[in-house]
Design a protein around this nucleic acid. Structure first.
Lengths: 118, 118
DNA sequence: TATCTATATTGACAAACATCGATTCAAGGT
DNA sequence: ACCTTGAATCGATGTTTGTCAATATAGATA
């Protein structure tokens, strides 16, 4: 009977190791998950990297030109997802559509850093 | 012939609107996409939020306790993905396995912010 | 050894996603 | 009107992903 203490004699209790309130809850979890889903694709990151470097508008034709290994419909599809997620905006002028990085991208990512860091 | 200039008379040329070098390329794109895939799930974000708030170890049993709407194998699966992505570390002590948030999470996210911001 | 508990693994399945070819839509030029 | 070009949409397809029930593994206790 209890000749020696096991490595972890005590069952871990919530009071011993668990936070009362997690740092990501409810709506925030959904919003960040949605944001990161938008960022969780190589093609979309390439597009964002292009727009960030341009510091302004880039027309869809140039985006397609840079991402040469994918078809036009595929890139259009990714642009749509980025628009819906609010990470870019697209404006049609004449024949062309010009895309711009939305500032909300950086602010939302920074919000995540703050939420985790507390 | 050319009675008046159309809204966008000139075809957008790379030199007019395109950056010479995008801000996310090659390996960096892959690494960030992999990171964001790890973050692109509500359950995994909840787990990370728990670990962040705990500021230390949390045993798997408490994680499962907090995320009550999912089965134990499902949570174990997410913990595995987080481990493989280097976002958490797990250490077995006796019967229990204790998880900790890896510091690399914040640094990697901040790297992304810097890359986009230039 | 046998047994109990905590965690991980396996196998199956449905839903979500990335991709493409074909088509459509929008706008300008002839 | 017609044609041309840039971009979006549609429909189909193969892959990835989240989930669970069942089972296996690791470690402690008896």
């Amino acid at each position: 009977m209890t000749s020696r203490l096991p490595i972890a004699a005590e069952t871990p209790t919530p009071s011993s190791c668990c936070p009362t309130r997690p740092r990501l809850r409810g709506k925030a979890v959904k919003q960040f998950a949605s944001l990161f889903k938008g960022l969780a694709d190589e093609t979309r990151l390439e597009i964002l990297g292009l727009l960030a470097a341009a510091q302004g508008e880039v027309c869809a034709c140039h985006i397609e030109e840079h991402i040469k290994h994918l078809s036009q419909p595929t890139i259009s599809h990714h642009l749509k997802l980025l628009r819906e997620e609010g990470l870019v905006t697209g404006e049609r002028r004449g024949t062309w559509v010009y895309y711009t990085l939305d500032k909300s991208l950086l602010s939302r990512v920074k919000q995540f850093v703050e939420a985790i860091r507390e």
